[in-house]
Design a binder for these strands. Structure first.
Length: 568
RNA sequence: UGUCCCGUGGUGUAAUUGGCAACACGUCUGACUCUGGAUCAGAAGAGUUCAGGUUCGACCCCUGACGGGACAACCA
C-alpha cells in the first residue's frame, strides 16, 4: 500500500497546532534537545492494534516527520504470560500499513533486560530498592488506601548486601513465582499511591517469546517504561492520560539513576461511539467468538478496518481531523465514516450490483447491445467500461413500489424511470406468485432515450441501477452495521458490553448479482456499487469460485433518512 | 491524606497567548445532477460549567464551588 502522508510544513507554520506541537515548538526555540525530536510507539504485543493505537501512531510518527526527527517502534514485552509472537507480527504489519515509518528501528524492551538489571542493582546499592517477601495480599493491605497512608513492610530495612544477594538469587531461579519481589524504596505515605514502594521485579517462570528461559524475573511496566525511553534517547514520550499519575514515579527512577531523562506528555485516548476500545474487551469478543477473529471487519482493529476496505490515508486523515487534546472525549464514528467516504468517492471504481434482485423483462426489446459506463465521475482519467444490455435485467427490489409513498421517485406501476447508462423504461405489468409476492416486472423501453445520445427530451425523476441477467455473476456480499447498539457500550452501568452487541451487525447476502467487469479484480480492491455504497473484495473468504464483498460504508442516503424520519 | 488532570455549539477541535468565539463532522434549506451520491450556495446551532475577583477589556489570569476522568495488579 502506498504511503501518502501529506507534508505538514504548512501546518507547522500555521497558528493552529495541538498542544504537543506547541510544546515541541517551544523546545526547539529553547534548544532543549538541541533541535532533536525523537518519538516512539511502544505497544505491548498482547493483542492486535486498534484505531486508538492508530491515533497514537499518526501522532508520534507525524511529529517525527514534521520535525525531521526519528520514530521508533518498540515492543514493551515485559510480561511473557500475556505476549505472543503472533501479536508482534501483526503489529509490525499494521504500523507499516498505516504508514508509520520506523525504518529499521524495531526495538524490544526485552533487549534491555540486562541493562535494567544492572540499574536495579545500582538502586539497591544506593539503598533505594529492597527485596520484599510479602505476598500480594499482604502488600495490598500494607499499601493503605487512597485516604490513608500505607505501612512499611517488615523487610523494608534489609541491608544492601542481603538485598543484593536475594535479588541475584531471584534472578538465578532460586524462588518460586510470587515468593519475592524487588521494590523501590520511596514513600509508603505518599498521597500518590504509585509512589508507595512500587514493585520493580516479579518472579515469573515462563518462557518469553524472545528471551526464552534466560530470565525468570521480569521488570514491571512502571520500572521499565521510562528506562526504555531513556535508553533510546526519546525526547518526547507521548502517552495517554492515565499515565499522568505515573510520571512522578518515572521521574524518580530516572533521577535516582542519573540517566537521560525524556519528557513525558499525556494526551486523551480515542473513544469512538458505538465501539469498545480496550484490548481486553476486544480479546473477549475474539475468544468468545462474537466476531470472526481480530480482523473481523466489524472490529475497530487496524486489521479489521483494512479488511473492511478502509485505506491508510482515510485513517490518517481521521487522526488529523479529530485533533489531540487533554480532555476525555467521545468521537462520533461519523467522522471516521466521513474520512473513508471522502477518499473512496475520489478513488473508487464505480460498478453496478444488485443485492436484492427483481427480474425485469423489457417486452419490446430484442437482441443485445453494448453500452458505455463511466468508471469514476470524479476522475475522468479512470476511463470507461462496457456493459451489456438485453431483454432481461435485474433491478433492486426496493427500487420498485407497487403503492408508492409520497416522495418516492423510482419505479412504480405505469411510471417511468431511467436505467443507468441505458434507457428509460416504463412499468406495464406486475407479476406475482401464489403468495402475492412480486416476482417479475414487465416493462417497455423508449428507444429514443439511450444514455449519451441526447435524442430525447424526456425527463424522469429517478435513475436506478441494474445488472444484465445473461452475464451477471453471482457473488456474496456482507453488509456490516455497528457492532454495538449503545453509543458507549463500556459506559453502561447495568449491562455488560457483550449484552449490547448488535445482533444485526452482519448480514450475508449469498446471491447478489454483479456486472462481469469485476471478475478481473483481486482481493482487497475497492469499488463503489452505484447508489449502494463502497465495497471491497474480501481477502479472507474470496475463492476462485466465489467473490465475497465487504461493505465498507454506505453512501449518504437522504432518502433513507426521510423514510426513517417519517416512520418515527 | 487524598493526590493529579480536564470542563468551548449535537460531536471533535481552534481562538495570533488578554481585544466581544473559528473550522470540520453532523443537522436543515435550496440549486444542480443519468448515483436520492458527489458538487455548489445558504441556514440554524455555543456567548465558553457556575460564582466572585484582577483589568478599559477575560474562553484565556486569580480564588472558590460544581461536574467529568485517572490512581489503591507481582497488567500495560
Amino acid at each position: 500500500m502506498e504511503n501518502n502522508w501529506s507534508n505538514k510544513s504548512d501546518l507547522l507554520k500555521s497558528k493552529s497546532k495541538n498542544f504537543i506541537y506547541e510544546i515541541i515548538d517551544e523546545d526547539m526555540k529553547t534548544k532543549k534537545w538541541n533541535g532533536r525530536v525523537y518519538t516512539r510507539f511502544p505497544p505491548e504485543p498482547n493483542g492486535y492494534l486498534h484505531i486508538g493505537h492508530a491515533k497514537s501512531i499518526c501522532l508520534n510518527y507525524g511529529i517525527a516527520r514534521d520535525y525531521n526527527g526519528k520514530f521508533n517502534l518498540r515492543f514493551d514485552d515485559t510480561n511473557p504470560t500475556k505476549e505472543d509472537q503472533e501479536y508482534v507480527n501483526s503489529i509490525i504489519e499494521d504500523v507499516k500499513w498505516l504508514g508509520g515509518d520506523f525504518e529499521d528501528r524495531v526495538f524490544y524492551a526485552s533487549d534491555y533486560f540486562e541493562q535494567m538489571f544492572q540499574w536495579a542493582e545500582k538502586l539497591i546499592k544506593k539503598g533505594k530498592a529492597y527485596v520484599d517477601d510479602s505476598d500480594p495480599e499482604t502488600m495490598r493491605g500494607l499499601r493503605g488506601t487512597i485516604n490513608e497512608a500505607g505501612k512499611e513492610s517488615p523487610h523494608r530495612n534489609r541491608s544492601v548486601e542481603e538485598n543484593l544477594d536475594l535479588f541475584n538469587r531471584m534472578k538465578n531461579g532460586e524462588f518460586k513465582n510470587g515468593e519475592k519481589v524487588l521494590r523501590a524504596k520511596i514513600d509508603m505515605a505518599s498521597p500518590n499511591m504509585l509512589l508507595r514502594d512500587p514493585v520493580m521485579y516479579r518472579i515469573i517462570h515462563s518462557e518469553h517469546h524472545r528471551t526464552g528461559n534466560k530470565w525468570c524475573i521480569y521488570p514491571t511496566y512502571d520500572w521499565a517504561h521510562g528506562l526504555e525511553d531513556s535508553i533510546e534517547g526519546i525526547t518526547h514520550s507521548i502517552c495517554t492520560l492515565e499515565f499522568e499519575v505515573h510520571r512522578p514515579l518515572y521521574d524518580w527512577f530516572l533521577k535516582e539513576l542519573e540517566i537521560y531523562h525524556p519528557q513525558q506528555i499525556e494526551f486523551a485516548r480515542l473513544n469512538l461511539t458505538y465501539t469498545v476500545m480496550s484490548k481486553r474487551k476486544l480479546l473477549e469478543l475474539v475468544e468468545q467468538k462474537f466476531v470472526d477473529g481480530w480482523d473481523d471487519p466489524r472490529m475497530p482493529t487496524i486489521s479489521g478496518y483494512r479488511r473492511r476496505g478502509y485505506t491508510p490515508e482515510a485513517i490518517q486523515n481521521f487522526a488529523e481531523i479529530i485533533g489531540v487534546a487533554k480532555r476525555d472525549a467521545m468521537t462520533d464514528v461519523a467522522l471516521l465514516e466521513f474520512s473513508i467516504r471522502e477518499e473512496l468517492n475520489k478513488k473508487a471504481q464505480r460498478v453496478m450490483a444488485v443485492l436484492d434482485p427483481l427480474k425485469v423483462v423489457i417486452t419490446n426489446y430484442n437482441g443485445e447491445e453494448v453500452l458505455e459506463a463511466v468508471n469514476n465521475p470524479e476522475d475522468s482519467s479512470m476511463g470507461h467500461r462496457e456493459i451489456n444490455f438485453s431483454r432481461e435485467i435485474y433491478i433492486e427490489k426496493n427500487d420498485f413500489m407497487e403503492n408508492p409513498v409520497k416522495g418516492f421517485h423510482r419505479l412504480v406501476p405505469g411510471g417511468e424511470v431511467r436505467l443507468r447508462y441505458a434507457y428509460i423504461i416504463k412499468c406495464d405489468e406486475v407479476i406475482k406468485n401464489d403468495k402475492g409476492e412480486i416476482v417479475q416486472l414487465n416493462c417497455s423501453y423508449d428507444s429514443d432515450t439511450r444514455s449519451g445520445t441526447g435524442t430525447s427530451t424526456k425527463k424522469v425523476k429517478g435513475t436506478i441501477h441494474w445488472v444484465n441477467v445473461k452475464d451477471a455473476i453471482n457473488c456474496e456480499v456482507r453488509l456490516y452495521d455497528r457492532l454495538f447498539t449503545a453509543e458507549d457500550p463500556s459506559g453502561e452501568k447495568e449491562k455488560d458490553f457483550k449484552d449490547l452487541i448488535n445482533k444485526d451487525s452482519l448480514k450475508i447476502i449469498s446471491d447478489a448479482k454483479l456486472e462481469p467487469f469485476v471478475k478481473k479484480f483481486k482481493p482487497g480492491e475497492k469499488f463503489q456499487f452505484e447508489r449502494l455504497g463502497y465495497f471491497c473484495i474480501d481477502t479472507k473468504y474470496t475463492t476462485n469460485e466465489k467473490l465475497v464483498f465487504n461493505r465498507t460504508v454506505t453512501l449518504k442516503d437522504t432518502w433513507a433518512k426521510t423514510v426513517n424520519k417519517n416512520r418515527i
